[in-house]
Design a protein around this nucleic acid. Sequence first.
RNA 1: GGUCUUGUAGCCGAGUGGCUAGGCAAAGCUCUGCAAAAGCUUCUACACCGGUUCGAAUCCGGUCGAGACCUCCA
Length: 498
Amino acid sequence: MSSLHIYNSLTRQKEKFEPVNPPHVGLYVCGPTVYSDAHIGNVRTFSSFDMIYRYLRYSGYKVRYVRNITDAGHLTNERGEGVNRMESQAKLESLEPMEIVQKYTVGFHHVMELFNTFPPTIEPTATGHLIEQIELIENLIENGFAYEVGGSVYFDVKKYNETYNYGALSGRNIDELIAGYRDLDGQDEKRNSIDFALWKKASPEHIMQWRSPWGMGFPGWHLECSAMSTKYLGHEFDIHGGGMDLKFPHHECEIAQNNGSTGHGGAKYWLHTNMLNFNGQKMSKSLGNSILPMQFITGDHPLLDKAYSPMTVKFLFLQSHYSSELDINIKGLQDAEKGLKRLMDALKEISNPKYHIANVATTALTEIEEQLSRLCGECKTNMDDDFNTAKTIACLFELSTIVNSLKAGIIKPEQLSSDSISMLQKTLNDYLTDVFGLQEDNENNNAKLDEVMQVLINIRKEAKVKKDFATSDKIRNELLEKGVQLKDEKDGSVSWSI
RNA sequence: GGUCUUGUAGCCGAGUGGCUAGGCAAAGCUCUGCAAAAGCUUCUACACCGGUUCGAAUCCGGUCGAGACCUCCA
């Protein structure tokens, strides 16, 4: 079906992508915890997986894309007294926990829509799958990989490691982990410091707690993803993704839970997207320097010089590889804005019907056609190589140069058959629109505004005919001050853009 | 401390041992009433020191620097 190769974190090498059950592909991505606003780093991760989802579909796969919503809250401190995140934030804001969940879920969806990402095909919540999670724990206890102590249940990592390899994904070994934990106190109930909670007993004041065979409590941090990926994608599925920061312990624990309960590790391929920095500094909730997506869009942040559209930010992401760390800064945003405009202008230009006239194909391909054909083919080759969007974009820029040369008359229409023109248009459109999910900022697509602009353009045209350049320049300059740029095109027409 | 990643031209950022990444910026030219846009041209780098090789940005070793995870985070 395709020659896609992806870098598998589990094996630490690039592998040919062979779905368990083609043409179907199961994709699971660890979603957000909805107890605060999603920040721009979250958006990078989910945009990356959106691109992956889109490209898999574009390649002909039928994808079930599951991305969870974590709404149950986790321990802030696994060794400590078990503060439920959802609950503490709720008290702070005097809201019901589920109100917070609702508020931030809606906000998250809104942001993802602004960034033009597709919703997953299933978006399960942790609280909606407590039965499955409890069943999973019972299963693990039965299989001897979990033990109950005083109303809590822990995963027995040492026991697990006798049969499986805890650390296969993250490259850690349990002896070192135990050694590393030694100086930390409060390992009261656990058999070993590295054991992790599957179910945590809740104290009476916890608002979010549920009935279980071990008493009232709440599920452990890693449990929901195992339960829900198994439920919707099966014991063995194709791709599991998430941010690099989840590799350990979260994904390592997930694999352990999967193996311990089903005998299978879950996903065949593990993908990790890398972190986003701002001005060279790590962006994180704990450092308090995270910029919210809406702040980019409004420009309302002391570190930003102006507003940047979601598409500009997304394009900046796509210009680097998903597995590379990316530093976001003003210069980069400005560059991305210009670069994206160049590509979108080229797409708009080549979509003009005037290029799509029946052109007789010559028997031999012209030099330009050969170059064009090569570039279009390379887009796929590059994407098949672990979703190399940066390289693909480089090809698209080169295709744009062909479009612009055509527009400028440097390349003559005779040099390109209508098939070549179609291929050029299709490639730009497919990758920009379908695979990358980039779109025109809708300000440019207002019909009424265009009518108004035509009035101004006509007045200016008349002034120009009369050689009244003072008036014509006044119109152009004052519009520019308002952020609208007029361009006198080669063919005598005038175009405008915001 | 442990595990891992990384160091590429003014900036960002791809790079499969030998062939121009690309974008932005800068300079020149062309086009234009002037602009803008666009086209062409120029600027050609791989932290440092060794090694392997006919040949290394790419592989290996070391040094120095940066970062991530090990603790809530995508």
